[in-house]
């Protein structure tokens, strides 16, 4: 496994979108924050109240408001992360065949299993970690901008923001979430890697067509919707939270059916539930099978 670090670096050199995409989103969000459109509207009416010295919110509700706002900044990054993961995995074993560099890569003492594994690791670990870093920087800078603005308007940012801010909770919860999501969706990542290794052309189409066509055939032939629910409900639900399985629960805290005075990201995350979910392990097995198939195709197919 000594080669993994070099292989992962190689992936980042080739796929610069891994860091450019989250960095670009961070820059746009911060520009919006600077012009006041994100930070201020999110803090909303309570800012006005606070500035007039009429912040009567109880401390728990105050903390919930800040947590909800800061955690919510991550939602767009997570959507982008998943799109990035799809495009990355579909390209990762296809581009090297298209530009014929596969013959060069395979002329070095690196096994096909090591290579494919490095691509899987990038998809489900590296991309989430880079995304997390971008989220964390965006959150901190947004809060700093908001503080400067608040203070300039005569408010007390220390009291209004920083005192109610629990970064350990927000970052801990966000990190667990961005790592859990790709693991939960790993059967799709495995499938994309396999298509990337196998498709002669148009990997995007080949990857997505069965996701729509197979459920349709199932519906017509058997009248059931097993595949449709397997494919689509998996994306919409994530058994990570103790407040229901909505994938985006963390970003929609204000809509959640629980005592808003108790909002804490680590508080709503239930790792035991996640790790004991049979669907999670079934998905990991599917991912393993597709990844093995991708290694097999790279190893055995004659590319000339």
């Amino acid at each position: 496994m000594g080669n993994q670090l070099a292989l992962i670096k190689r992936e980042i050199w080739e796929h610069r979108s891994i860091y450019i995409t989250p960095a670009a989103i961070a820059i746009v969000m911060l520009l919006l924050a600077l012009t006041g459109q994100v930070a201020i509207s999110a803090l909303g009416a309570s800012v006005d109240l606070a500035m007039m010295g009429a912040n009567e919110l109880p401390p728990e509700a105050h903390k919930a408001m800040i947590t909800g706002f800061v955690a919510g900044l991550g939602s767009i990054f997570v959507v982008a992360m998943w799109i990035l993961t799809i495009f990355y995995s579909l390209d990762s074993l296809y581009a090297e065949r298209k530009d014929k560099s596969i013959l060069f890569w395979r002329s070095l003492p690196v096994t096909d299993a090591e290579t494919v594994l490095s691509k899987l690791l990038v998809a489900i670990v590296v991309i989430p970690l880079v995304t997390f870093a971008a989220i964390a920087v965006t959150q901190i800078l947004s809060l700093i901008f908001a503080s400067i603005w608040l203070n300039a308007e005569g408010g007390n940012a220390g009291l209004l923001i920083w005192q109610a801010l629990d970064l350990v909770d927000i970052w801990g919860g966000t990190l667990i979430f961005v790592l859990a999501l790709p693991i939960w969706l790993s059967p799709f990542v495995g499938w994309y890697l396999f298509v990337s290794a196998w498709a002669k052309r148009m990997p995007l189409l080949i990857a997505f067509l069965p996701l729509f066509v197979l459920p349709m055939i199932e519906k017509i032939v058997f009248g059931t919707a097993f595949l449709a629910s397997a494919f689509f409900e998996r994306t919409a639900s994530l058994p990570l939270f103790n407040i229901g399985d909505n994938t985006f629960a963390m970003f929609e805290l204000e809509d959640m059916p629980f005592d808003e005075n108790m909002i804490s990201l680590l508080g709503i995350i239930d790792l035991g539930k996640f790790l004991s979910s049979l669907s999670l392990w079934a998905g990991l097995i599917v991912c393993g099978l597709f990844t093995t198939a991708a290694i097999y195709v790279r190893r055995y197919r004659d590319e000339s």
Partner: peptide, 14 residues
């Protein structure tokens, strides 16, 4: 070592 064809070095790499 092998050089299979002049085109095999990946074009994107520094």
């Amino acid at each position: 070592c092998f050089i299979a064809d002049v085109a095999v070095l990946p074009r994107w790499i520094r």
